[in-house]
Write a protein that binds this DNA or RNA. Sequence first.
RNA 1: GCGAGAGUGGCGGAACUGGCAGACGCACUGGACUUAGGAUCCAGCGGGCAACCGUAGGGGUUCAAAUCCCCUCUCUCGCACCA
Length: 827
Amino acid sequence: MDIKYDPTAIELKWQTYWEEKKLFQVTEDPSRKKYYLLEMFPYPSGRIHMGHVRNYTIGDVVARYKRMRGYNVLHPMGWDAFGMPAENAAIAKKVHPAKWTYENIDYMRSQLKKMGFSYDWDRELATCDVDYYKWEQLFFVRMYEKGLVYQKEATVNWCPACQTVLANEQVEAGLCWRCSSEVTTREMPGWFLKITAYAEELLEYCDRLPGWPERVMTMQKNWIGKSYGANIIFQLENSTEQIKVFTTRPDTVFGATFMTLAPEHPLAVKLSRGTPQEKTVDEFVQRVRKQDMIARTADDTEKEGVFTGGYCINPVTGARMPIFVGNFVLMEYGTGAVMAVPTHDQRDFEFAHKYGLPLIVVVQPPEGGLAPETMTAAYVNPGIMVNSGQFNGMDNEQAKRAIADYLASIQKGALAVTYRLRDWGISRQRYWGNPIPMIHCPACGIVPVPEKDLPVILPLDAEIPESGESPLPRLESFTNTACPKCAGPARRETDTMDTFMESSWYFDRYACPDCNTAPLDPAKVKYWLPVDQYIGGIEHAILHLLYSRFFTKVLRDMNMLEHNEPFTNLLTQGMVIKDGSKMSKSKGNVVDPDDLLSRYGADTVRLFSLFASPPERDLDWSDQGVDGSYRFVNRLWRLFFDHPDMIKASPAEYDPGQLTPELKRLDRKIHQTIRKVTDDIDKKFHFNTAIAACMELFNLTAGLCPVVPVGDPGRDVIKMAIDTLIVMLSPMIPHMTQEMWATMGRSDDLVDLPWPKYDPERAKEDEIQLVIQVNGKLRSRLTIAVDTDEEEIKQRALEDEKIVTFIGGAAVKKVILVKNKLVNIVI
RNA sequence: GCGAGAGUGGCGGAACUGGCAGACGCACUGGACUUAGGAUCCAGCGGGCAACCGUAGGGGUUCAAAUCCCCUCUCUCGCACCA
């Protein structure tokens, strides 16, 4: 027949067919098991990159595979469409963020379609659509009513390049998560979501998500950072005021000899008022607070502090403790005040030495001998209580509880738990985002926009100034409004929401994208959610995944949905790298999907993305490797189209018992390959080994094809092998396999074909190459029938010519036989 | 520093529960076909002439170790003054 493989034509043909037939459109069907497969939706930056190609190819194979396994598969796609780059483009290219965004979406959608992904495009959504973001405003107002939203003046992370506030999660090692600029701090009002109200549940459920990678769970647990300890109250000297501290070491309170406050602590400056230290303290506090996040949290920043002039009283010893301000104490954690126990905390130890403060040992190691004069470092291991009144002699672990109880009895403290997790600051001083539906009234204060007045529409007639600042505060048509309570003149909030808000519930909305009476349709959400398999990059291990878990719980508590966790299984795929590093313009190692598509077609690109490495590992992009995949695809094509009899309909049934040995081998290989491919995809998503197995089957088939003449009954086995390959490879290379299928005159769509089954009997080997070892070293082989009698095997092994020479005259000490594997003769 | 993961040919990567190390692919070498080959097909391909040696290095357990245990080294990722 000699038909040249022309991927572009074939791919367009089938993509059009799929689209016109709406083959991937799905609806709820209670009679079938659903499977919700989701890949993280992209930011519409302009064009898709290789990371998307890989992520979405992996997802598409799983979606198509599950569908062939009989599931009703939901596989949607959309756009995370609010965000800074649109504003940057507006300045650089003089194009409105909306126009820029929607044009990008159009182009990227066409790219995804060219890849042949099986999305239900009818569910497509863009988060910058009013019909999407208006519901988020409703959530916001309801959360406000539930006390989960509040505004406060706070020290916030500020990215000078993005000119906006960042949440704690969005600062990575002191740098902005998006642009890597150094983050500074600022005092400003902002809106916060009370994610801390869910800290305990978020933590607890970490252990109930067995389908998540261990390391993601660990990162989330560490981020939430639960610590057990106690709060302890210290009375100020000559004052009724108190300082509360949190400590994980209540057992060491008898050794607390001074106090350290965060520079932001209200008492820090107050205590020095009217003392000789006033000026020093003010200067110190000012200096530390001005430092950026990096300098302040860097490893090598020296611990320093100043005396405030104030004292407090140790509640158990009555000792007078000087109060310091220290640069290493964080206002955000605990209470912003630390009781310092220099003998049992390394930081306090160093601080005490620097400023000549007293040391009292209160936990003595089992071997004893710990004394303040000879200590070179804090002792932080377990031990026996000393210098601690009635607690002396107690094991220090027990003393934690005992001392906390004692403090409670004298009303000076209690057991306490503290989390590292902070509330989520969601205010962004940006234009291209979801407006926060709040109104500031000079008379009534903060008033939420009533639900009936929602949505607050982001005005599209705004122009972004050269400076990059948000135009909203100066846009009077937007800011001027009437107070919903008193009808007096009022001003709209001009901050917009963090774009992570939109990505925290888009997966719910996919279940009911057209619902226009409510954000979510409970019945549809109940059918589809939670997501069975979520796939995306590890870079969202905390950010997006933690926020989404939080949102799910909030929406659950608003009775919008019923499940507790959004993603049952999570696959974090590795990066696509080239020449040893991540693809980037500056390195000049970027591979453009469009180039690949025009040169090789989608099937080859998909195949290589899957074949080059298992999904969770980084993928090393290799141009020559792509050639290899292209070669395989061509060989498959030719084996089919170069043999006219292959093109004819289905193979006839044949009796495997009647086959020649070599064809029987092929029949066996077919069944073994189905088993292997099914296992690899189902259990581990290891497409690379699944494809390798298909290649093996192909190689065997192609080798046999010329030696089994047309008309020979054996052709049916060959035909069966090709048929099976087409079906099994169809999730990976859907276009060409469908073309081959149709060429055979078959009218079914491969996506709806049942996944092939294997016959375990036919997959069984009847002969085994048994390995014979002498003292654990390979010396000979023996071909035996499966399940040959053990004695017979031993006998034959010992009689083997090579083995006889190896053993020589030596006495055989032992013969170990591993069934159907090997014989090891020990001499 | 703490925590997690990884280290296998020239390269990407295979190897079930300890049982033939290197599947599959790339690169490379030789050959065939050819005006030509960056197409295709066939053969070879860890090192060593060999005995043998080989899964980062060293020790151990075992009849048998890439796989289990101990020590060391290297790389990647995460956390990093969290009281």
